[in-house]
C-alpha cells in the first residue's frame, strides 16, 4: 500500500484521509466517507450518476482520482440540503415528478446545481446541454428540465 495523506473538504466539512493513489473519488465518497448518494452507473463518465461538484464545477467522480481533490472542495447530493431544508432544486424535482427510479437523480441534481451556480437563469437549451452528460432512462428529461427551469425562475436562482 502506498497510501497518501490528503486534506480536502466535502459538503463544508474538512477531512484528512489516507488514500490509495488510484482510488477514484467515487470510491472515496461512497466507501470511505459513507456518502452513498453518489451513484455508479457506467464507470466511464457517460451516465453522470456519479456527478459531484468540485470547486464549483460538475465532474464525474468516477473519472477523478482521490488524490486530485487535495485542497479542494467537493459538494455531493448529501450537501444540498442546508439546515434541514431541501435545496430549491430538490423541492422542484419533487413538485414536478422529476424523480422516478431515482438512480440518476443525485447526479442530475448536481449537474443542475453546478449550472445554476454559474448561470442562475439559463435558457432551456443551456439546461439541456448542462445535463447532456446525465442519462435518465425513466422520464425522458421533460420534467427534469421543467424542474430546473422552475428553480431558476425563483429570485436567487436556486442557489444559496
Amino acid at each position: 500500500m502506498r497510501a497518501m495523506l490528503i486534506e480536502f473538504k466535502v459538503n463544508g466539512k474538512n477531512y484528512g484521509r489516507e488514500v490509495r493513489p488510484t482510488m477514484r473519488l467515487l470510491d472515496l465518497l461512497r466507501d470511505e466517507l459513507g456518502l452513498t448518494g453518489t451513484k455508479e452507473g457506467c464507470a466511464e463518465g457517460e451516465c453522470g450518476a456519479c456527478t459531484v461538484i468540485m470547486d464549483g464545477e460538475a465532474v464525474n467522480s468516477c473519472l477523478v482520482l482521490a488524490p486530485q481533490i487535495r485542497g479542494r472542495e467537493i459538494i455531493t447530493v448529501e450537501g444540498l440540503e442546508q439546515g434541514g431544508e431541501l435545496d430549491l432544486l430538490q423541492q422542484k424535482f419533487l413538485e414536478h415528478s422529476a424523480v422516478e427510479c431515482g438512480f440518476c437523480t443525485p447526479g442530475m441534481l448536481m449537474s443542475a446545481k453546478a449550472l445554476l451556480m454559474k448561470n442562475p437563469h439559463p435558457s432551456e437549451e443551456e439546461i439541456r446541454l448542462a445535463i447532456a452528460g446525465n442519462l435518465c432512462r425513466c422520464a425522458g428529461y421533460s420534467k427534469i428540465v421543467a424542474a430546473i427551469k422552475d428553480a431558476s425562475h425563483s429570485a436567487d436562482g436556486g442557489c444559496r
Partner: peptide, 9 residues
Amino acid sequence: IGSNQIRSA
C-alpha cells in the same frame, strides 16, 4: 467535447 462534466476535468 463530451459533457459538461468531461469539459470541467
